[in-house]
Simulated assay, not measured.
Amino acid sequence: MKIKSVDVIPLQIPFEDGSTGSGLMPTKWTTLEIVLVRIETENGIVGWGDGFAYSCRRAVAAAIEDMVAPLLVGREIDDIAALNLELQQRLHLHGRYGITMFAISAIDIALWDIAAKHEETSLARLLAVRPRTSLPAYASLMRYAEPDLVRSFAAKAVAEGYKTVKLHEISLDAIKAGRQGAGTETKLATDVNCNWSIEQAHEIMPHMRRLDLYWVEEPVFPPDDAEALGMLQAEYGVAIASGENACTSVEFARTAPHIKYLQPSVTKVGGVSEFLRVCDVAEGYGASVMPHAPYFGPGYWATIQLTAAREICEQFEHLYIEPEAYLDPSIPLPSGGEVEVLDRPGIGFEPDPDIIERFKI
């Protein structure tokens, strides 16, 4: 199969989440920014992908159009993982990570979508003999900051059947409120997004153990400080998670020997090809994979397929928001703390043209 065309479709979809919209992104966050990629082969197969684009949509779209797409048209789709590495090498002058890898991630997801569709099977079945058909999902709450709101949203998620809840809280009072709302039987985690100093981490981590947190995510900056993360995990007996901001398996090989949970994000790490390499790294070091997936385009669908195919992936992350629309209205949303793995060709994603037209920018 040869690549006929690569099209980039930037979109913005508003969402509601019950928070002030501040705290998680550099600016107020109220819309899902998506850089959708459509790749068509000469024999008419269409693959869909997207690269991480929150607060960097224009840069990612430009990187795909100007840096990556010109290297693809007319190329054979045979060894996608090898092509991924070729793109990394040919574009390394533009930076090994960040925007460059977000762009490559979008392309790689679309190519794997095509590969599975060509075989008339799902991506999960292409990668595994007996993939899972249902996955445990956890509610990934927004940052509310106010203890009463944290308590309320944690309780709401548990009432909906979630058995694991992740906060994005950084103050002890808010995390305590999350535990109160979730109850003692619920697995509770918090994503600190690198907001604690190492001194603050030493002050707060004993409380994380007392509150029986399932994991603490990116407690300090930088998020890839393997020695600091490993020290906190060993000293306080609470699992540490990191990796949502890491690109390629090379970065994960640094943290895998030190922490329990690796968190590759398929729209950032280098797409399906690098996600699979991270799973191999985790297996080699005895770590586990907790995929990062706070999106609702092809990255969402690809993450479900990958989690179903690789048993080392523990749970599916579901961002606890309500978008104004879903690009593919048939999106499998969690129910009772489980998400169904749809057995459809490719990653399963087929967007509604009317919704694309409505939110295209």
Rank of each mutant, 00 (worst) to 15 (best):
R96P: 00
E340L: 08
H202W: 08
Y295M: 15
M1L: 05
K28I: 14
I107R: 11
T186N: 05
E185K: 15
Q200D: 07
A293L: 04
Y320C: 12
L111D: 02
R143P: 01
R130W: 03
E350V: 12
A253D: 13
A241Q: 13
L72C: 11
L111P: 06
A256T: 06
E274M: 02
L72Y: 11
S171C: 00
P334L: 00
I240K: 10
V269L: 09
H92G: 01
R358T: 15
E244V: 07
E218I: 10
L71W: 09
V192K: 11
K360Q: 14
H258N: 07
A293T: 11
A287L: 04
Q89H: 15
T31Y: 04
V37K: 00
T27F: 12
S55I: 05
I45C: 10
P257S: 06
S105Q: 04
V6W: 03
E217I: 10
I99M: 03
S265W: 13
L11F: 07
A157G: 14
E40S: 13
P345K: 01
V35Q: 10
K268V: 12
P294Y: 03
G21V: 12
H118L: 12
L327D: 08
I347M: 09
V150E: 11
R130P: 12
V281T: 13
G337Q: 13
T133C: 09
G44A: 03
D354H: 10
G95S: 02
V266T: 14
S140E: 05
E244K: 14
L276G: 01
M25Y: 08
P264V: 12
G98R: 08
S152T: 14
M25Q: 15
G230F: 00
N84M: 02
S19E: 06
E218H: 06
F296E: 03
F316T: 06
D343W: 09
T164A: 13
I240N: 08
I361F: 12
G286P: 03
A246L: 15
D343H: 10
F52H: 13
R277Q: 15
E283I: 05
P219C: 05
I356L: 15
L72H: 08
G95I: 15
L213V: 11
V8E: 01
D108R: 04
Q180W: 11
D7A: 00
